[in-house]
Design a protein around this nucleic acid. Structure first.
Lengths: 226, 226
DNA sequence: ACTAAAGGATGACAAATATCATATCTTAAA
DNA sequence: TTTAAGATATGATATTTGTCATCCTTTAGT
């Protein structure tokens, strides 16, 4: 069983507010496991008995719409927590979580989180700020979905993916998403997304090489994104 | 200066978690004021030095998109609080608030809210649950905007307005929104919204009499909304 | 009561987006 | 390696939605 003290999740999440004693408790009660690409961490409607710490990898949070299509609501990556809203609300998960890459995850039982929550004001405030940040982001995405064209949303999404997940050595986006997944982020048909990527490619905004995407003209993309 | 003890906001918001002493403090520090229909309570980007309690009336929370159109992100009504996210995040308001009706509002300074927040665990947990609820709602709306047609979104919005704000004696929706505002909720052009309302009217789903809207066939609307 | 301004309605048309069909390419399993 | 399944690409077409113009109706102000 590894220690939580040096874990990357401590750097980026509410766990940074925990003191040494609390970290020891955390190490004791957590369970580690790995998740293969494509595997489900939890499904929409599941009751979560705790939160997940993402030590490595990226997953998507999705919701199935009644038209049968999945919408990606958020991508969650290394260093972040998963399941906070559900835990605080004491409600089943509103979104499902699926690994986009192989992941290393820890599970911390609800009882332990609530103990920190009640005992450590900094921890609860920090967690709250995360939820608030998510709310702000969700509102902003909501406005984009309502007011921007698919083309604009694609430009925004590509810039977001580069900013958030960075680049490989060849300047291509580090995060690997299928065309269908990109469509599911921007809320459009897969074919429309593919067509626009081709168009961006032809007009020199991006460069497509197989699955790889390189943002060639970020200024142009930013202008498109407005 | 009126007492907070009997205030309707206590019934529905995090204020229900305050004890008698705290309520007295609240009464002491709050300022009451009224807002006329159409007036701005705060604007996107404003730094809020506290939260607002809505004693009466309804307001819209909007965000201006780069295309020049306002998107209504949420309607907030009698009994609810305003500005919680901004307060917790210690960030400027992400959304602007404009009265849809004449309102009675109280303002509670940040210092006092934070005092309750730190001293009273129930209060902070309750407030957090509100933010979590907002997040869930925002995610759900986001999915609808991404995946549902304008017609479906209109049906959903009409049902929501009836459920949330109720009916007048003549069965018409109690909340009065302009066509432009309805468009701004469902994220479409005003003309498209007007056209669909006419269509719903002709097909017997709703009945339009001037500004009044009566949901005639809720079953049909629910089916449309899926 | 009159008038201007705003809101609402509708047609004609354009643009954006979805859908369906099909072809090609990639990947993983036998 | 071969093959099948899935992913990507693209054309043709249908549908949805937006835009612009115009007219009608209501509302607020003088």
């Amino acid at each position: 069983m590894s220690k939580c003290e040096q874990c990357i999740v401590r750097e980026f999440s509410a766990l940074k507010a925990l003191n040494k004693d609390e970290l020891l408790k955390l190490s004791d009660c957590k369970t580690s496991f790995s998740v293969k690409k494509g595997e489900v961490i939890f499904e929409e409607g599941d009751s979560l008995d705790g939160i997940f710490c993402i030590k490595d990898g990226v997953c998507k949070l999705t919701k199935l719409s009644s038209n049968g299509k999945d919408q990606i609501v958020k991508l969650v990556t290394k260093g972040e927590l998963l399941g906070q809203r559900s835990l605080i609300s004491e409600e089943p998960a509103n979104l499902g979580a699926v690994a986009l890459e192989d992941m290393q995850v820890c599970f911390v039982p609800k009882s332990q989180v609530m103990e920190f929550f009640n005992a450590n004001n900094k921890f609860s405030l920090s967690m709250m700020k995360n939820v608030c940040h998510d709310l702000k982001e969700a509102d902003n995405i909501l406005v984009n979905l309502a007011q921007k064209s698919v083309k604009e949303r694609l430009a925004i999404a590509l810039l977001y993916l580069e900013d958030t997940f960075g680049l490989n050595n060849d300047d291509s986006l580090k995060i690997q998403l299928s065309r269908e997944e990109i469509s599911s982020i921007i809320g459009t048909a897969t074919e429309s997304c593919i067509r626009l990527l081709s168009e961006f490619n032809k007009s020199g905004l991006i460069e497509l090489t197989g699955k790889k995407i390189i943002l060639k003209d970020k200024k142009g993309l930013r202008k498109l994104a407005e």
